[in-house]
Amino acid sequence: MERLHFHEELEQLKLTVLNMAALTQQAFENAVKAYINRDVDLAQKIIDGDQEVNKIELQVDHQSLRLLALEQPMARDLRMIIGNMKISNELERIADQAVNISERTIFLSQYSPLDEIPAMDSLIEISRQMLKKAVSSLRDMDATTAKEVRNMDDQADESTLQVLKSLIEHMVADASAIDKRRLKTRRSIQTIILSRCLERVGDLSTNIGEHVAFMVEGINIKHQKFKEEDPES
């Protein structure tokens, strides 16, 4: 009673989501690169390319709904479909954050750069690592790696806070030069929004990790502290 045809379709769904993950990760990496290098062309390419990810999300919804309706999946098959649907939603939102970052980059690149923001590098790095780890846990169906993603979230939150503090300091400095200050404020606000996008990528990567853990182990670990849910740790 092997369900070969169904399992082939399920495998296809997984490949579609993995392809979506690769495109999303690439979009985010490029968004960060465009911000760092003040590369307006690259930023525009990311904005233009977002439709592809949106299209795949619709495709995943369609494939998943079809399998749920026609195949009555059970156990890990059911978890795979539910998990992939949720992950595709998170990926689409990450791709949207890449677009948002790119829009900030296009604005910021019109003006001279702000003074150095020390925590920004670590925020970029941590959000990149979180997404990378989430995608690799999805590719390998590895619950241990998946759970590690959310352990990095505090670090991302802390870096975001430090970025915010630095930018507020930027905004209140040079209070005498009104016109200059206005421009600096606008750049600072855009950079704050950008840092918020980076932090959101970390949050959404955490969600992906939680979905992967659910797919592999069947346990819902959302809204739980890491150490509490794992009795062996």
Binding site: M1, E2, R3, F6, H7, P73, M74, A75, R76, D77, L78, R79, E217, G218, I219
Partner: peptide, 19 residues
């Protein structure tokens, strides 16, 4: 049992992976 069976043998049966 139908969402998170304990044993692989059960999982394989209910998901149609029995050869």
């Amino acid at each position: 049992l139908f969402t998170r069976p304990k044993l692989k043998q059960t999982e394989d049966y209910i998901t149609g992976r029995f050869g």
